[in-house]
């Protein structure tokens, strides 16, 4: 397995300065986890062309949902939302417009691509939220596996579950090339929003934390698509 940690000495220094001491870590709201400010390795030189170049990105500190938004919570927001009785799982087949409206209604927002990827893979450039190994037992492989209920029950470095598999998760970012990427694509621009993390119906390739997928804002294209939210620190 190949990966290229590109945290330079400068990057490491920034990271060191950005690390919170235990006394300063804010208490996350219920069912959310804290992600500190600082740089991380984003993208990949070994995935799709839109993932390259691997680069350093930086985020502010933020809170992010531990789990994907559930059926039950989404139904409280949209009574017309239909799901099978007793299926206490993630909300699925949700458009970007619906997800963004939901997030706003609960005082949160959708994560940017940077925020999503950092929450999923931490700062050590790992391939998946749990590390670099692949096995199907790490992911919610089908609808029978509830949120946070995979066999390995592995979380991301910051404590998020199901950031690989389950449902593809909406981000707030338009599908655009990273700086320095010169491979053209007619889909780039402010036409599509980026989804991350793969879903039930995916190859291991799509579960990698750097993988990007894109969809229009008003449809899921029948892909299993849901979301999780972030909240800014006050």
């Amino acid at each position: 397995m190949r990966r290229l940690p590109i945290l330079s000495a400068v990057g490491l220094a920034i990271l060191f300065l950005a690390v919170d001491s235990p006394n300063t870590i804010p208490t996350p709201p219920s069912e959310m986890v804290y992600v500190p400010a600082g740089p991380f390795t984003m993208g990949s030189n070994f995935g799709d062309t839109d993932e390259s170049p691997e680069h350093l990105a930086t985020t502010k500190a933020y809170f992010i949902d531990k789990y994907e938004v559930s059926n039950a919570d989404f139904k409280k927001f949209d009574p017309a939302f239909i799901y099978k009785d007793g299926n206490d799982n993630h909300a699925c087949i949700v458009t970007w417009e619906q997800a963004a409206t939901y997030a706003k209604s609960v005082g949160k927002r959708l994560p940017t691509e940077e925020e999503w990827e950092k929450a999923a893979r931490g700062t050590d450039a790992r391939l998946y939220p749990w590390g670099d190994s692949w096995d199907a037992t790490f992911v919610a492989w089908d609808e029978t596996i509830p949120r946070g209920g995979t066999i390995m029950n592995a979380s991301s470095p910051y404590g998020c579950f199901d950031m690989a598999g389950g449902v593809r998760e909406w981000t707030d970012s338009w599908y655009k090339p990273y700086a320095g990427n010169e491979v053209g694509c007619e889909s780039y621009g402010e036409q599509f929003k980026v989804c991350r993390g793969g879903s039930h119906f995916c190859d291991p390739f799509s579960f990698r934390s750097s993988h990007r997928f894109y969809l229009p804002t008003n449809t899921t294209g029948n892909y299993y698509t849901g979301f999780r939210c972030v909240k800014d620190l006050e």
Binding site: M1, F46, D48, T49, V183, E186, S187, P204, F205
Partner: peptide, 23 residues
């Protein structure tokens, strides 16, 4: 060793790549 669609991205199930986990 990937099936790559018209937009340059690997298709949903087009992974035969030795550098990536595959079945």
């Amino acid at each position: 060793f990937k099936l790559v669609d018209y937009d340059g991205k690997m298709t949903l199930w087009g992974n035969f790549c030795p550098d990536l986990p595959h079945e």
